[in-house]
Nucleic acid binder design. Structure first.
Lengths: 147, 147
DNA sequence: ATCTTGACAAGAATAATTCTTATTTGATAA
DNA sequence: TTATCAAATAAGAATTATTCTTGTCAAGAT
């Protein structure tokens, strides 16, 4: 498979439109975990009439087809990951920066814990503080506790 | 420690008010991963003048003190977990039901991958389809693909 | 008694996402 | 090539979750 071609595997039978092609092009090979709004802003630069509903619809269609992973790693918004290889994430709890972790941990759920679920996958989040935020914390401006 | 007493460990120095006590009482021992709105609805049944801002403020105060985990396991809203023991989750991708997984997997990030982050924790999500949703899917009403 | 600080209610404001509706388009088959 | 029709679109209204603002209040400190 050619690099940047992976999403094509999930678009068979989808009606191809200029809008969708622009969205796919933006997503192909994108490792930044963009939000719907990131996609919308990037694509509407070239297609000024692009509607945010179109972006949401296309992302949801791709998600259902398995071409995108919807990540719940940001409490403020959904993030989408077009990286076809299953992987995990390291997240800075201060600035919410996200780093891919390409390690397969092979965690498994014992049958008695799976509670008759049909298991389809897993995702590990590591939490930490990134070097930049550690630096900032060290130089004094630590946030107060208001409790 | 008495069962249902765990949150008390994080409230030292917090000004105690009837509203906060009602919120704490609702959270103590709650294994349902309630959202802010769940807390608000439950507590305002007894305190009709409760403001949603008070709920959000109290939850955020507890979170900062380590008494609550803010879970990003639901793309629609934040969920809060007052269970003080670190644990993982099994999530139905159809109905979003959440089941606690009390297994310690001891996943670790190699130093070269940690990228100078100071690692503070991790969380594993298992994805699957729960028995009820499997049942529904088998009996015919499978959702169409709109792509 | 007054001051200070944190907590409060009420609701406005914001931000992300979904929904609605009329219109247009791409894929299919005639 | 053209007609057809389901699906996709634009535009913006609506919804939902969350945060912010403002004025008030209460408890402890001075």
């Amino acid at each position: 498979m050619k690099a940047g071609d992976s999403l094509k595997h999930f678009t068979a039978g989808m009606k191809m439109t200029p809008q969708r092609m622009a969205i796919l092009e933006f997503l192909e090979g994108n490792l930044d975990h963009p939000s719907a709004d990131d996609v919308y802003r990037a694509v509407s630069a070239r297609y000024p009439t692009m509607s945010c509903a179109t972006v949401y619809n296309t992302l949801e269609t791709l998600r259902k087809r398995g071409g995108l992973l919807e990540l719940s790693i940001d409490p403020l918004r959904k993030r989408f990951d077009p990286n076809p290889k299953p992987h995990n994430h390291l997240i800075c709890t201060v600035c919410r920066k996200i780093v891919d972790v390409h390690i397969d941990y092979r965690v498994e759920l014992p049958a008695e814990t799976a509670a008759d679920f049909e298991i389809t996958g897993n995702h590990i989040e590591f939490y930490g503080v990134c070097p930049e935020c550690k630096q900032k914390a060290a130089t004094g401006n630590r946030p107060e506790d208001n409790g």
